[in-house]
Simulated assay, not measured.
Amino acid sequence: MDDLEQLSLALRALPPSCGPVRLIAVDGHAGSGKSTFAARLAEALGGGVPVLHLDDLASHEEFFDWTDRMLGQVVAPLSRGEEARYEPYDWVDRRFTSARTLAPAPVVLVEGVGAGRRALRPHLAWLFWMDKDADGSWQRGRLRDGDALSAFWDDWTMAETRHFLADPSYSFANSLVRECSEGYEVLPRPSATARLNGIITEGHRISPPY
Rank of each mutant, 00 (worst) to 15 (best):
R80P: 06
M70Y: 09
L78I: 12
T36W: 02
D90E: 09
P20Q: 02
F63H: 14
R80N: 13
L102N: 03
T67Y: 03
M158D: 12
A13G: 05
A115K: 01
F152C: 03
S171V: 11
R94A: 14
P168R: 03
D147A: 15
R178G: 09
D68I: 07
D147S: 14
S32F: 04
H53F: 07
A42C: 08
A115G: 09
V177N: 02
Q73K: 13
W91N: 11
L71S: 13
A13D: 09
E83W: 07
L41M: 05
E202Q: 11
G48C: 10
R140Q: 04
D135L: 06
R121A: 10
V21S: 05
L109T: 06
A148Y: 07
A44E: 13
P209L: 07
L165H: 13
T161M: 08
T36A: 08
S17V: 08
G112H: 00
M1P: 02
P122K: 13
P15A: 15
L57G: 04
S35C: 03
V186S: 00
Y170K: 14
P16I: 12
L127V: 04
D131C: 03
H60V: 05
M70S: 11
Q73L: 10
A148R: 12
A30M: 08
A42Y: 02
A166Q: 14
L4P: 01
P15F: 15
R22S: 11
L127F: 04
A159N: 06
A192T: 00
E43Y: 05
Y86V: 11
S32A: 14
A13F: 00
G203F: 07
L176P: 10
L14Y: 06
H53R: 08
E179Y: 01
A105T: 09
E43V: 13
F37P: 05
Y89L: 05
L78E: 01
Y170Q: 14
G33W: 03
S137H: 04
L23W: 00
V21K: 08
L57H: 08
D154N: 13
A194M: 10
S150R: 11
V49K: 10
R94G: 09
W153T: 03
A119G: 12
G112Y: 07
D3C: 09
A13L: 05
E62T: 14
S181V: 15
A39L: 08
G203T: 14
R69V: 08
L143C: 12
R189N: 14
T36S: 11
